[in-house]
Design a protein around this nucleic acid. Structure first.
Lengths: 205, 205
DNA sequence: GTCTATAGAAGGATAGAC
DNA sequence: GTCTATCCTTCTATAGAC
């Protein structure tokens, strides 16, 4: 019974996740989710009361997953270069398995900016710069990274990883026309991105 | 009369543009658009028959504007470095005036991949590499750009320009918490991005 | 060309039986 | 806990008067 409940609830949650990611909050239909889960519409309301609550449950989990991928960077005992390589490998691999998450998250953040606080609050952002400064004091001398350009640097890193997936439909379409393969392009990006960034940051001697 | 018609039609079109960009196709309501234009709902249908047609009209114009910004690059008689600087200055300035376009476009492309063909077809993509190769044959010898890495290079350029706007809600929220100003960050990016890329591409001698 | 009124369909939510 | 049936609101779209 309780075993069965869990199964139904999870089935609903998983179906909702898929449908919401594909169609977004506004485009998703409760009927779609019910069909997808192989159950009745009324059951959705039994477990989650409203569409809004169901969506929130889904969104918080997903957004959490996405941002967690940024965290280990600060705990690993690696050099700056190794951290960059580690990040792109892990983050891009995660998105290969969940290619539609980036656009979904960016989109729903835009639709409902209130959601951002919840997620951002959980991350100790100030730790970011502190750790960078403390753990890599010596290394930073060789790179063009300063307190002033941290936002530029961080968004460049994030963008090089996320943008190809957020813009996948366009990029894949253009590449197809030019004879490139999107999946291979993504695979290569795990190396290209950190190489590119490290090159850009190195101070010319 | 004909003068007035034009005005009404344009007013509808502009209102629709604003509402669609803000809420997306699924989230937008014909009533919102009518209210925004200060007219009656029925008039929308008189001019555009259906919500779908109205949306398509809006989308095609907007997507066109966005991609046009990439075109002049190939006609200008500039060095590769100058083209990069030119692109980031123009493209980012355009998005400063239309900060919500990028996410809107990426999103609707994802929802309706069929739209992509229409836009992509208009661009002579093969010309891209041909021009690059022809106009900058000598310069390319000094850069890490090959036929194989063109996709990596192009998407990196596009991403450095577009991503900050697509992810604006998150980025702005994080920056606020850290004491940075988003608008200033964007302004600085017009210089930072081309500097960064040129540095990354230069072959170490 | 512009309005009011309304048809008609769709979707979220609930009542009630099992 | 799960289903069927149904309510009620919302939204697109049209009919018809001015």
């Amino acid at each position: 019974m309780t075993e069965n409940d869990k199964l139904t609830e999870e089935k609903i949650f998983e179906s909702a996740t898929e449908v919401f990611i594909e169609k977004g909050m506004d485009g998703a239909r409760m009927q779609d989710i019910a069909d997808h889960a192989g159950i009745n519409k009324a059951l959705l309301h039994y477990y989650y009361r409203t569409k809004d609550r169901l969506f929130n449950a889904v969104f918080e989990k997903i957004a959490g997953q996405m941002f967690k991928k940024f965290a280990p960077i600060f705990d690993e005992n690696l050099s700056l270069e190794e951290k960059l390589r580690f990040f792109f490998r892990e983050h891009i691999t995660f998105m290969q398995k969940n290619p539609k998450l980036p656009l979904f998250i960016l989109n729903e953040f835009h639709r409902n900016p209130g959601r951002i606080r919840k997620v951002v609050q959980k991350i100790d952002i100030n730790k970011l710069w502190t750790v960078l400064e403390a753990q890599h004091k010596e290394e930073l001398k060789n790179y063009n990274i300063t307190r002033e350009t941290i936002p530029q640097f961080m968004t460049t890193v994030a963008g090089m990883s996320v943008f190809p997936f957020a813009a996948r439909p366009v990029i894949a379409s253009i590449m197809e026309k030019m004879g490139y393969d999107f999946d291979q392009y993504i695979e290569e990006r795990k190396e290209y991105a950190p190489d590119f960034i490290i090159n850009a940051l190195k101070k010319q001697v």
